[in-house]
Amino acid sequence: TTVHLNGVTYTFPNPEEARKFVEKLAKTLNLKVEVHNGTYHIE
């Protein structure tokens, strides 16, 4: 599972880890999250 954040790409072997990371980040920084083909894009 891949996460794109400010031009940096993070790869998680575990989709659940990626989801938790994204949710925590989005909540902390009040960001918008979009998912395209299983890839998270955070703005």
Rank of each mutant, 00 (worst) to 15 (best):
T1H: 07
T1W: 08
T1R: 10
T1A: 10
T2V: 13
T2A: 12
T2F: 12
T2K: 15
V3F: 03
V3S: 00
V3L: 05
H4N: 11
H4S: 08
H4L: 14
H4T: 09
H4K: 12
L5V: 14
L5F: 15
L5P: 00
L5W: 15
L5K: 02
L5Q: 02
L5G: 01
N6P: 06
N6T: 04
N6R: 07
N6A: 09
G7R: 06
G7K: 07
G7V: 02
G7L: 04
V8G: 04
V8Y: 11
V8I: 11
T9R: 13
T9K: 13
T9C: 11
T9I: 15
Y10T: 03
Y10G: 00
Y10W: 11
Y10D: 00
Y10Q: 02
T11W: 12
T11P: 05
T11S: 11
T11A: 09
T11M: 12
F12W: 02
F12Q: 00
F12R: 00
F12C: 11
F12T: 00
P13T: 11
P13W: 08
P13M: 10
P13G: 09
P13E: 11
N14W: 04
N14K: 05
N14A: 05
N14T: 11
N14C: 12
N14E: 05
P15W: 09
P15N: 10
P15V: 08
P15L: 10
P15T: 09
P15Y: 07
P15S: 11
E16W: 09
E16S: 09
E16T: 10
E16R: 07
E16M: 09
E17F: 08
E17I: 11
E17N: 07
E17V: 11
E17G: 09
E17K: 11
E17R: 09
A18E: 01
A18D: 00
A18Y: 01
A18V: 06
R19I: 09
R19Q: 09
R19N: 05
R19A: 10
R19W: 13
R19C: 06
R19G: 05
R19S: 06
K20A: 12
K20P: 00
K20F: 06
K20C: 12
F21S: 00
F21M: 03
F21I: 01
F21E: 01
F21K: 00
F21R: 00
V22I: 13
V22Q: 01
V22S: 02
V22C: 08
V22D: 00
V22A: 12
E23A: 06
E23D: 09
E23Q: 06
E23T: 05
E23M: 06
K24I: 13
K24P: 02
K24Q: 14
L25T: 03
A26F: 06
A26S: 12
A26I: 14
A26M: 14
K27C: 14
K27F: 13
K27R: 08
K27H: 13
K27G: 14
T28F: 15
T28N: 12
L29Y: 13
L29M: 12
L29A: 10
N30F: 07
N30Y: 06
N30I: 08
N30L: 07
L31M: 08
L31Y: 06
L31D: 01
K32V: 08
K32S: 06
K32C: 07
K32N: 05
K32F: 05
V33Q: 01
V33T: 02
V33H: 01
V33W: 13
E34N: 09
E34T: 15
E34A: 09
E34S: 13
E34W: 14
V35H: 05
V35T: 04
V35E: 06
V35N: 05
V35C: 10
V35G: 02
V35L: 13
V35Q: 05
V35M: 13
H36N: 07
H36G: 03
H36K: 13
H36E: 05
H36Q: 07
N37Q: 06
N37F: 04
N37M: 05
G38H: 05
G38V: 02
G38Y: 03
G38K: 02
G38S: 03
G38C: 11
T39W: 05
T39H: 15
T39I: 15
T39L: 05
Y40M: 07
Y40N: 02
Y40R: 00
Y40V: 07
Y40S: 03
H41V: 13
H41I: 15
H41P: 03
H41D: 04
I42W: 02
I42A: 04
I42H: 02
I42Q: 01
I42P: 03
I42Y: 04
E43G: 07
E43N: 10
E43K: 11
E43T: 15
E43W: 15
E43M: 14
